Amino acid sequence: MLITFTRSRFCIAPLDVIKIRLQLQIHSLSDPTSIRGIDGPVYKGTLGTLKQILREEGLTGLWKGNIPAEAMYLMYGAIQFSAYTHASHALNDLPSPYKLPDSANSFISGALAGACATTTTYPLDLLRTRFAAQGKDRVYFSILSSVRQIATTEGLPGFFRGLGAGVSQIVPYMGLFFAGYEALKPVLSKDVVPLPFGSSDAVSGVVASVLAKTAVYPLDTTRKRLQVQGPTRSQYVHRNIPLYKGVISTVGRIWKNEGRRGMYRGLTVSLMKAAPASAVTMWTYERTMGVLTSMDEKLKEV
């Protein structure tokens, strides 16, 4: 399973790089005055960004930041589902007067699991973003050197820049995702809408992911802008990334200067990446839980 997950993550890595480049681009394509004098690339859409990265940085440019991303997703998935299962069971075991509705149970369990996994793996997420933000002029030359450089110049807080935006995003995202998934799964089950090979789990994961991701996407853009703050801010592929401080202030400045488009840059490619990943994740999760439950029942019989 880990090998399959690693291969799938490797395949979607270029989409991650494209999304991050678009999110960090502050100049508006509809306003020519914002492009004049820009020392850096001007990306236009998913396909245009792909072509430009290939032309200027070569094929390897599409896999920048993939190593910390691989480590992050492996750790994140393990922590997320472990926390979700424990939280869900704990809430289900509450006595009658305090028992929550299933939708509230799913939302709270998902939110807690997301916050726990995000905080634990955040330094890897930050490294992924910074490597993906590098152009032809490299800021960091290896994972080890990047860790040393951040630790020396920014200290421990440097590894957690934008964590507030990350948690603010992931708590409602995971809550909405799991609540939506648990609500959709029975509707799309074989008794209501026949789907082959248990694919109702996959379809429910796709729909829940698209809805939740779209709802909280501005906070994802905010997180990316905050992650590249620090002494190396002007050395990334976009040389004109402003100085941001705080989640609310950053959201306000992006909305004021770039409007709704600025908040949602890269959403299309983000959904292209997240939807199939959610489908595979939830299908695999349900199959794995089914096997483990069956094994547990057989052991109890023995």
Rank of each mutant, 00 (worst) to 15 (best):
P218V: 15
L219N: 10
L219V: 13
L219I: 14
D220T: 15
D220E: 11
D220A: 12
D220S: 12
T221S: 15
T221G: 08
T222M: 12
R223L: 11
K224L: 09
R225N: 13
R225S: 10
R225V: 10
L226M: 11
L226D: 04
Q227N: 14
Q227E: 15
Q227A: 15
Q227I: 13
V228S: 06
V228P: 04
Q229S: 06
Q229I: 02
Q229E: 10
Q229M: 13
Q229C: 03
G230E: 08
G230P: 09
P231H: 07
P231M: 00
T232Q: 14
T232L: 05
R233F: 02
R233M: 06
R233D: 01
S234K: 15
S234W: 08
Y236N: 00
Y236E: 01
V237Q: 10
V237G: 06
H238K: 02
H238L: 04
H238G: 00
H238C: 02
R239D: 13
R239F: 06
R239L: 04
N240T: 13
N240D: 15
N240C: 04
I241Y: 01
I241K: 01
I241P: 00
P242C: 07
P242R: 07
P242F: 05
P242I: 03
L243C: 04
L243H: 12
L243W: 06
L243Q: 11
L243D: 11
Y244V: 02
Y244L: 03
K245Q: 11
K245V: 09
K245G: 00
K245Y: 06
G246E: 04
G246M: 05
G246Q: 06
G246F: 08
V247I: 14
I248T: 13
I248R: 12
I248G: 02
S249D: 15
T250F: 04
